[in-house]
Each structure stands twice: as structure tokens, then as C-alpha cells.
């Protein structure tokens, strides 16, 4: 089992690396673009897993940070294309179409917004936390709807994709590999993180906050830092989504989007990081299959999801690698979220 846990991610990575040329050779290049959507959704889901699966923070507003990253990316891109500077409080900010500038800015700003929202939401717990994260995401939704300069309700179309260090990486193939690189980088960093001292505190906080405080740890500070880190990764996912779609709209932060990401995490397996990516793959696959079969695919998907949650409580990933995949001595029971 332990071996499978190590080999499975590498096998999936090898498959992903090989797929685009194969798809192109098979004249199925359309799927490269679909796969890119899957990857960036997988990144969003994996970032949610950090707070949900490890930290036990059930956020129903994670799409808010996707939206922030997406809009920051889209707005700066559009100014870059139009050649007019963005004026914010008298300061002129030039636009750009350089990914090496856009992606870090989108990531950091999403992190800052997560820090602010988290500081408020984390004062509550349980159902209140779910509701207030949802409320903040909806606030952002209406904020974006109100931004008439950037398309309001209809959203903002971009003219091209970003460059990377001046290189043209706008092809579907290059966009795929750019997105994959970001996903892999996040997964590598996040795996380190969850096993570090910081990660152990986060995992302990899911199980028993009161005990953690009694040991002398300021729990809220750690949870907030984790929430902000997850927000950063979601912001990156949002920026990459917009780069791929060449389009950003308020729909990106709609509560149904937050729900989708949540479903991917639960489907793939909370507290596994890789699982949510697999969850994204399966989600898109089911959407593809079921929507071809019936228009009301959500109605069929709902029951399928309930079955999945009931029968594979550890999620799909644990079905593949076994329950003890992250058991370097602990967490052998791979359970669902404990509410504090």
C-alpha cells in the first residue's frame, strides 16, 4: 500500500505529461483544452483540501479566491492589451500580459483577500463558518457584477493568453503544460507543508482545537495562515483558469462554483491532496458523460455523489492507494471532518 501511495501520483503525472502529444496525434486536440480546465479545477480543489481535509475548515466560499485571482489577472491583461493604465486611488498601474508578473500578483492579492476574509470567518466555527464564507463569496460576486468597466454581469473577454518570460505560450498545448507545472509545484509544496510542524498543527486543529490551545499553541493564527495559503493557491488557479479561457465573469465566484470544488474534494478524498485532483477528473468525466445522456445531468449527478460519499467515505484516492496513504505513524483511520 505504501508503495502504491508513492507510485500512483507519479504514474498519473507521467500519463498527463504524455497525453497532449497523443491526443494531437489522434486528432483529438479538443481534449487538451478540456484537460487544462480539469487541471486548474484540480488545483482549486487541492487548495481547498488544505483547509477542508487537513484543517477541518468547511469553506463554502472558496471560489471567492478563484475570482480574485481571475479578475486581477483579467483586469491587468486587458489594460495591458489596451495600453491604458489602471488608475487606482490616483496611482497608475500599467497592465501587462507577462505571466511571470501576472501570476504572482494574482496569487498574492488572492492571499491578502483570504487573510482579511479568514480573519473574520475564523472567529466562528461549524455551520456559521460555512455560512459566512458563502456570504463573503456572494459579496464578491455582486462586486464583480457591479464592475461595469470590466463587463459587469457579462464578464470580460481577453484577446489573447499571457506570455511567459516573453515567450508565446498561447497554444492549447503550452497552456496545458503551464497549468500542469503550476499544479505539480503546488502539490509538491503542499505535501511538504502538511507533514511539517505547521501541517501537524493544522491537522491537530481539525481533531481537537481545545487541546491544542491547552498545549500552548495559538490555534487561530495557524488556521488563518493556512486559510490564506489556500486562498493564494486558489488565486493562482483562478488566474490560470482565466488565462486558459481568455475570459472572466462573475460566474467564477458563484456559490455553485464553490459547491463544485467542494464536491471534487469530497469525491476524490479529503486530506489526500492528490485525491481532489482525481476528483476534478472524475467530476468532468461524469459531467461529460451524463450531460450527453440527459440535460438534467445534475439531477443524476446528485444521487451518484451521495452514493459515492456513502460508500467510499475516504474518497476515490484512498480506494486506489489504500486507507493508510498518509500514515507515517498516524492518522491511520482516514476519517471525515470532525467538527470542533
Amino acid at each position: 500500500m505504501a508503495d502504491r501511495a508513492r507510485i500512483a501520483p507519479l504514474a498519473f503525472l507521467a500519463l498527463l505529461l504524455a497525453l497532449p502529444p497523443l491526443l494531437e496525434a489522434a486528432d483529438q486536440a479538443f481534449y487538451i483544452s478540456l484537460l487544462t480546465r480539469v487541471l486548474v479545477s484540480g488545483l482549486a480543489a487541492a487548495s481547498l483540501d488544505l483547509i477542508l481535509g487537513y484543517g477541518g475548515m468547511v469553506s463554502f466560499g472558496h471560489a471567492a479566491f478563484l475570482g480574485v485571482g481571475g479578475y486581477v489577472f483579467g483586469i491587468l491583461m486587458s489594460h495591458g492589451f489596451m495600453g491604458d493604465a489602471l488608475v487606482l486611488g490616483g496611482v497608475e498601474i500599467p497592465g501587462t500580459n507577462e505571466a511571470l508578473i501576472l501570476l504572482p500578483i494574482a496569487t498574492i492579492l488572492a492571499g491578502l483577500v483570504a487573510l482579511a476574509i479568514g480573519a473574520i470567518c475564523l472567529r466562528t466555527g461549524g455551520v456559521h463558518f460555512i455560512m459566512i464564507t458563502l456570504a463573503f463569496a456572494q459579496m464578491l460576486y455582486f462586486l464583480f457584477v457591479g464592475m461595469e468597466d470590466y463587463g459587469g454581469d457579462d464578464g470580460l473577454s481577453l484577446w489573447d493568453r499571457a506570455t511567459l518570460a516573453g515567450w508565446d505560450v498561447s497554444s492549447d498545448m503550452a497552456t496545458f503544460y503551464l497549468s500542469l507545472t503550476a499544479l505539480v509545484a503546488f502539490l509538491v509544496l503542499a505535501r511538504r507543508l502538511v507533514d511539517s510542524r505547521f501541517g501537524m498543527v493544522i491537522r491537530a486543529a481539525r481533531q481537537n482545537e481545545r487541546r491544542l490551545a491547552a498545549l500552548g499553541l495559538p490555534v487561530q493564527r495557524y488556521k488563518l495562515a493556512c486559510f490564506a495559503l489556500a486562498g493564494m493557491a486558489a488565486g493562482l488557479a483562478g488566474a490560470l483558469t482565466v488565462n486558459h479561457a481568455e475570459f472572466v465573469s462573475p460566474a467564477m465566484v458563484h456559490w455553485t462554483r464553490s459547491g463544485e470544488i467542494l464536491v471534487m474534494v469530497i469525491l476524490g478524498g479529503m486530506g489526500t491532496l492528490y485525491g481532489p485532483v482525481l476528483g476534478a477528473v472524475v467530476y468532468f468525466l461524469l459531467e461529460h458523460l451524463l450531460s450527453g445522456w440527459t440535460e438534467h445531468w445534475m439531477a443524476a449527478f446528485g444521487p451518484a455523489l451521495i452514493l459515492a460519499v456513502l460508500f467510499f467515505r475516504g474518497g476515490l484516492w484512498r480506494l486506489i492507494v489504500g486507507k493508510e496513504m498518509d500514515t507515517a505513524g498516524g492518522e491511520a483511520r482516514g476519517e471525515a471532518v470532525h467538527h470542533g
Binding site: L193, R197, F198, A328
Partner: peptide, 13 residues
């Protein structure tokens, strides 16, 4: 007790 737990890299176990 060992000071800050804002350490992100080394596996604690």
C-alpha cells in the same frame, strides 16, 4: 513548547 510552529518544510515526524 519548542517555539514557533511556523515551519513549513521539514517533516515533523
Amino acid at each position: 513548547k519548542a517555539g514557533t510552529s511556523f515551519r513549513f518544510w521539514r517533516p515533523a515526524r
